[in-house]
């Protein structure tokens, strides 16, 4: 089974490489390390968000509020930076992250304590969080000239040829690799998703684990709030609108099963990278950017069809085993 999973991520990586080289044929100079670093940089935020979403999807839930959470946390640090440029940026990062954590925990509490389905709660908080941005900013934008230079620099400083933005993503990916494979919390995310009843018998608090998943997703969304505002140098109500579905799409393309329990860190990262490569390749080969949406939609459908065939086979097998046991 684990070999089969490895194969899936392997093929996704092959597909991404093929895409890069095919683009390079049409537009030589695309497959240079600098260009690729640019694409990785473009998809860093998506990678981080996809990891948070992965944990939530593993526990059989979904977090549709990530983009609104990102925009709200981002707006808060943007406003703080505008009002008090003297506050050091790491403190702002901490503020954005903890605020995101708070928003995620609110979602988690409703789901854990009241048993309201995650899709309902996060559908509600998606609209509420985005509305709150309008309220706290009074409908105003925070424009580029309002930010302090260090606020903007903390995603741009280069270190070993890559910008800090990429390094944040690298650190988070490594942290997730450890979390998901080496800690009991990481393993319990999988356990809850594969079989909640069995997880209860194994002494795992299903509700609490789901709550932690939403906390994690919120925390990363909050951190990405700072990253987004710093990278695109704008704070507004429209920041990352509709991005929650892109994040889910990255997870799905990365082979994370929407029915829970199946998915890897590598899958989430490659899924995000895949969308990044497509978005980076289209302008280079002179395809109108208006094609982007249809192509990523087709990619999602294709990914589900390919992943689904494996899942269906697995399901049949389980049925057969159950019959044999009876």
């Amino acid at each position: 089974m684990s070999q089969f999973l490895k194969l899936r991520e392997f093929w996704l990586a092959v597909l991404i490489a093929a895409l890069v080289f095919a683009t390079n044929m049409r537009a030589p100079g695309f497959a240079t390390p600098e260009r690729f670093a640019g694409i990785v940089e473009d998809s860093s935020i998506l990678m981080i968000l996809a990891l948070g979403q992965m944990v939530v999807i593993l526990t059989r839930s979904i977090d549709l509020s990530v983009a609104s959470n990102l925009a709200l946390s981002g707006m808060i640090v943007a406003l703080i930076n505008k009002a008090a440029p003297g506050i050091p940026v790491p403190a702002l990062m901490l503020i954005a992250t903890s605020f995101g954590l708070l928003l995620g925990a609110l979602n988690g509490l409703f789901i854990w304590r009241l048993g309201i389905p995650a899709i309902v709660v996060t559908l509600g908080s998606l609209t509420i969080y985005r509305g709150v941005i309008f309220l706290i900013a009074g409908g105003q934008w925070v424009n580029a000239d309002a930010f302090s230079s260090s606020f903007v620099a903390y995603t741009r400083i280069e270190f070993l040829g890559l910008s800090l933005l990429v390094w944040y993503a690298v650190v988070i990916v490594i942290a997730f690799l450890i979390l998901m494979s080496r800690t009991s919390l990481g393993r319990s995310f999988y356990a809850v998703g594969v079989n909640p009843t069995a997880a209860v018998y194994a002494g795992i608090d299903v509700g609490r684990t789901t709550f932690y998943a939403f906390c994690l997703s919120g925390l990363l969304s909050g951190f990405c709030g700072y990253l987004w505002v710093s990278r695109y140098v704008i704070g507004s109500v429209e920041v990352a609108r509709g991005y929650e579905l892109t994040v889910v799409a990255a997870c799905v393309i990365g082979g994370i099963s929407i029915s829970g329990g199946v998915g890897t860190v590598a899958g989430a990262v490659l899924g995000a990278l895949f969308l990044g490569v497509i978005n980076g390749a289209l302008p280079v080969i002179n395809i109108s950017p208006f094609w982007q949406m249809a192509i990523s939609g087709a990619a999602i459908i294709l990914a589900v069809v390919l992943n689904g065939r494996g899942a269906k086979r697995g399901q049949r097998l389980i049925l057969k085993n159950a019959e044999a046991a009876a």
Partner: peptide, 12 residues
């Protein structure tokens, strides 16, 4: 998941 995909596809 299917309809998240077709959502982008149709509007795309």
């Amino acid at each position: 998941v299917v309809t998240i995909g077709t959502m982008s596809f149709f509007r795309g």
